[in-house]
């Protein structure tokens, strides 16, 4: 299942500049696509507009060829799992209850949990290494533990597309590598993966395609080698950078340099 945007624009009331400005892109079926860009470049807005929770001001987004806004939300939730950035934990649900919510789009309002639901939940907990946390209340989890539980919830949806907004931001090296490695493996098996991240080198190493956003527009898109070029990255991030090929992993490597004299920082 692929995601696509044609001349997609979207904005928030009270702001003059649109958060997304005529974005055209494609997230091909079974690809691992990373979305990069500075703070405020429109990455999270792109996720909302691509999946139809936010109405575009112009253009359109499609999921599997159908307009994202035309999808029945429950049907869409059976195909697309999302780990977004903002989520409240006002009330103490357990980690298992939070993961079980990934089954809700399959269950409807009244149907009880079936053996298949329980198997899917167990498997999702195991894959994200949170089985031991199942009975814990989410209010007692660390940031990294909670993040893995939320990824497990998205997996419990049994999605064909997985979209994640900064999922690795609060994870340590081993959990970060585990999660991104899993995303890579799932993409190889045909799942469409969309990863929004600030971790340039991780994206360069694991993603098939990179979309670089700048002030709501696509500054560049394509394979990491084509997009992560020094002059493009420097102009988008407004910071001196050095880009070379990492000799160990064989992928582009971005190294931020010291600022030139006279620049703040």
């Amino acid at each position: 299942m692929k995601l696509a945007a044609e001349n997609l624009s979207a904005g928030y009331p009270g702001r003059r500049r649109p958060a997304l400005d005529r974005v055209t892109l494609e997230v091909p079926t079974g690809s691992f696509t990373a979305v990069l860009g500075p703070n405020g470049s429109g990455k999270s807005t792109l996720l909302r507009a691509l999946l139809g929770v936010m109405a575009p001001s112009a253009g359109r987004a499609t999921v599997d060829g159908t307009d994202a806004r035309a999808w029945n939300r429950r049907e869409l939730a059976r195909l697309v799992g999302v780990v977004s950035q903002n989520e409240a934990t006002a009330f103490p649900v357990t980690a298992r209850e939070l993961v079980a919510m990934g089954r809700y789009p399959h269950q409807g309002p009244l149907r009880a949990e079936r053996p298949h639901d329980r198997r899917v939940i167990q498997r999702a907990l195991k894959r994200c290494d949170v089985t031991e946390l199942a009975a814990r209340r989410v209010t007692t989890l660390s940031g990294g533990e909670l993040q893995r539980v939320r990824i497990a919830r998205a997996l419990a949806q049994e999605p064909r597309v997985l979209a994640l907004d900064e999922p690795t931001a609060s994870l340590d090296i081993s959990h970060k590598m585990t999660i991104v490695g899993l995303l890579r493996r799932w993409a190889d098996r045909g799942m469409t993966v969309l990863l929004i991240t600030h971790q340039l080198n991780l994206a360069a190493r694991f993603a098939d395609r990179v979309v670089l956003l700048h002030r709501g527009r696509v500054a560049a898109q394509g394979p990491p080698r084509k997009v992560l070029r020094e002059e493009v990255m420097e102009s988008v991030y407004r910071w001196p950078l050095h880009v070379d090929c990492d000799p160990v992993v064989g992928a582009p490597r971005v190294v931020p340099l010291d600022p030139p004299p006279g620049r703040p920082g």
């Binding site: 909302r48 989520e87 409240a88 009330f91 649900v93 269950q107 009244l110």
Partner: peptide
């Protein structure tokens, strides 16, 4: 009948929407 939707609303409207509400 709305119990499951309320579970989702309690963790945020955007998440609820992504989970089919």
């Amino acid at each position: 009948a709305l119990a499951r939707s309320l579970d989702l609303m309690a963790i945020g409207e955007e998440t609820a929407s992504f989970l089919g509400t």
